[in-house]
Computed example of a mutant assay.
Amino acid sequence: MSYSSESDLVGVAGNPYVALQKISGSERGSLTDAVEQALKEAIVTLVLEPGMMIDKMAVCDRMGVSRFPVSAALARLAHAGLVEVLPQRGTRVKPIALDDIRQHLFIRSALEVETVRGVALMHDRATIDALAENLEQQRKLAGNGQRLAFHTLDLAFHEILLDAVNLPRVKEIVAVSRNALDRARQLLASPERLVHTLDEHELVFDAIRAGKADVAAKAMHEHLDQVVAELHRSAKERPDLFAS
């Protein structure tokens, strides 16, 4: 389940649960999966903001499900570090912790820097063409501030690189860290930041296309490093979204 456009988020400030869609299905497992995916996307895209208490009954009513799949989905999201249970209060969206962000970025940097180094040495035409097509779509969106659509392309850009080296375990580890970072990435998704992200992707791509492995690795390292610096600025502007 996903939000097709920025307009899907209109009006959620007063009632964020309107962004959730009714689901169908009869098996508990499939319902739990669907609720988990919907809530995860709402959390990652900041429809459900860090620190917000989650109204289980509102989720049940909006999605047309019983309490069981909602509770099961929230338990999974707690394990993933996106929500937390507060004794005698309920479940809330977990505030963003800068210490956690730094650790996940360290993991991503270590793995993705070496990934682009390897891709640059491969000279694989299909990978280069896929990256070029992805960047062409990014250019169309970056200047228009379409952050959700751009975010999807951003994820796809990194997926292309990881798929190229064909190391499933590495891709799985990166995915875990990326999921933990997605909310923070949304905080940075100003029109200006989208343009900067595109520029950074272009530098990575140019180095890969030229077969310059060290240059590509450096460009990816600097691209990921920008997140920490900008998050510190965001924490000063919106301290309510971050864990102290």
Rank of each mutant, 00 (worst) to 15 (best):
L77S: 08
V83G: 07
A58N: 12
D99Q: 00
N134M: 04
A142G: 04
I101Q: 01
E136L: 10
D100S: 04
A73N: 08
A130W: 02
P95A: 00
L74G: 05
E114P: 01
G145Y: 10
E114T: 14
S66F: 13
V113Q: 14
A73Q: 01
A130S: 07
L141C: 07
R92N: 03
I128V: 12
V93Q: 05
H79T: 03
Q146S: 14
E114D: 14
G143E: 04
V116C: 11
V113M: 13
F150M: 06
R117D: 09
G81V: 00
A120I: 12
Q137R: 14
R76V: 04
S71G: 04
R89I: 06
I128Q: 10
D124H: 14
P87D: 06
R102K: 13
L141D: 07
R76C: 06
Q146M: 12
K140V: 11
D100Q: 03
A97F: 02
R117T: 13
A132S: 13
H151A: 12
E136P: 07
L111W: 09
G81Y: 00
H151T: 07
P87N: 04
L135M: 14
I101Y: 05
A73L: 04
G118K: 12
A80W: 01
Q88S: 15
I101K: 02
M122C: 02
G143L: 01
H123C: 13
K94R: 11
I107A: 04
A132R: 12
R108W: 08
R117Q: 14
E133A: 10
A75C: 12
A58C: 12
A80E: 07
R92C: 10
G118T: 12
R147A: 10
V93S: 05
M122F: 04
A75T: 13
A142N: 00
A58Y: 02
V116E: 06
T115A: 07
A58G: 14
N134E: 04
L82Q: 02
T152W: 09
R67C: 09
A149L: 15
D100P: 01
K94H: 03
E136C: 11
L98Y: 03
G143F: 03
A97M: 08
Q138S: 04
G90Q: 06
Q138P: 08
T91V: 15
L131P: 06
L98E: 04
A120M: 11
F106K: 13
I128Y: 10
L121I: 11
A132T: 09
A110V: 05
V70E: 10
L148W: 02
F68M: 15
F68N: 15
V119G: 03
I107L: 06
I128H: 03
R139F: 08
H123W: 13
V93L: 10
R92M: 06
Q88R: 14
